[in-house]
C-alpha cells in the first residue's frame, strides 16, 4: 500500500499547529521550569512536523519543501484536527489538550515504528520517545491540577469538558492511512480515561464536535494562526532566511 501525502500532511499539521500554539507559552508559563518544559515539547513537535512535511513534499513529488508546505498553503489546505488549532491561553486547557494529543501520538507512532513505510517508521522511532515524555508531563500536571486545590480541580474539569468533544476527530478515517486511526481509539481512550480518574476528575459525557480538519475544514482560529505564522515569509517571495 502507498502512503498518501494527505495522511502524512495530517500528522505533520497536527504537530506543526500544536507547536505554534505551544510556543505561545514561552515567557508566559506559571513557573520558569514550565517555560523550559513547554518550549521543549513545542520544539519536539516542531521537529516532528519538519520531518513529516519534508516527507509529505517528497510523496507529493512537486518539489515542495517543508517551508513551502508550512508557509505557502492556505487554511483550506491544512489537514490538522481542531483539537490543536484553537487558542490555548489557559494552562488547564493546554494540559488537557497535550494529554489527548500526546497519548494519541504515542499510540500512533508506536504503531508506525513497525510499519512497512521505512521513512515513516524512522520518523516515528524518534518521535515515540519524545511523546512518551509529553504524555508523562501532561499526566503529572493533570494529577496536580485535578487533585490540587478546589479551584484547580474545577478548572481542570472545565478544561477536559472543553477539549473532550475534539477527541473523536483524532480517530476519523483518512485515505491512504498507514495506521487506521480507528484502530487506535480503544487504547488511547483507555489511557486518557485512566489519567482522568487517577486525577480525581470525571470523564466528560459530551457529544463529539463535528470537526473537519482532515478534509481542510477548520475553525475560524486557524486562519488567524496562519496569518501570523506566514506573513513575514510571504512578504518576501523567494527570499532566503
Amino acid at each position: 500500500m502507498t502512503t498518501s501525502c494527505d495522511y502524512v500532511l495530517a500528522l505533520a499539521d497536527d504537530a506543526l499547529v500544536s507547536a505554534q500554539r505551544m510556543s505561545w507559552w514561552i515567557s508566559r508559563a506559571p513557573e520558569l521550569e514550565e517555560d523550559v518544559a513547554l518550549a521543549n515539547i513545542g520544539l519536539d513537535q516542531l521537529g516532528q512536523a519538519r520531518a513529516l512535511l519534508t516527507y509529505a513534499g517528497a510523496l507529493e513529488g512537486a518539489g515542495r519543501t517543508e517551508d513551502d508546505l508550512a508557509y505557502l498553503r492556505d487554511d483550506r489546505e491544512f489537514r490538522n484536527v481542531w483539537l490543536v488549532e484553537r487558542p490555548q491561553p489557559d494552562f488547564g486547557v493546554t494540559i488537557a489538550r497535550l494529554l489527548m494529543l500526546a497519548t494519541w501520538q504515542s499510540e500512533l507512532y508506536a504503531a508506525l515504528v513497525s510499519s512497512s513505510d521505512a521513512t515513516l517508521a524512522g520518523i516515528a522511532g524518534k518521535a515515540v520517545k519524545e511523546v512518551a515524555y509529553h504524555v508523562d508531563h501532561a499526566r503529572l500536571w493533570t494529577l496536580r491540577l485535578g487533585d490540587g486545590t478546589e479551584v484547580s480541580h474545577a478548572r481542570m474539569q472545565a478544561a477536559l469538558e472543553s477539549e473532550w468533544p475534539h477527541l473523536e476527530e483524532l480517530f476519523a478515517p483518512v485515505d491512504g492511512a498507514v495506521v487506521d486511526p480507528r484502530s487506535l481509539r480503544d487504547r488511547v481512550m483507555g489511557r486518557i480515561e485512566e489519567v482522568v480518574v487517577e486525577a480525581t476528575l470525571s470523564v466528560p459525557q459530551v457529544a463529539p464536535a463535528i470537526g473537519g480538519g482532515r478534509r481542510g475544514l477548520h475553525t475560524e482560529h486557524l486562519g488567524h494562526l496562519l496569518a501570523e505564522m506566514q506573513h513575514l515569509h510571504r512578504s518576501h517571495p523567494g527570499a532566503t532566511w
Binding site: 506543526l16 505554534q20 510556543s23 505561545w24 514561552i26 515567557s27 520558569l32 517555560d35 523550559v36 518550549a39 521543549n40 513545542g42 520544539l43 516542531l46 521537529g47 512536523a49 519538519r50 512535511l53 517543508e66 517551508d67 508550512a70 508557509y71 501570523e228 505564522m229 506573513h231 513575514l232 515569509h233 518576501h236 527570499a239 532566511w241
Partner: peptide
Amino acid sequence: ISRAPSLRRKAILMAKVQDEA
C-alpha cells in the same frame, strides 16, 4: 517565535529563548 520566517529559524529561536529560561 510565532512569525519566524522559516521552520529552521523558528526552531533555533525557540531553543534560544528556552536557553534563556
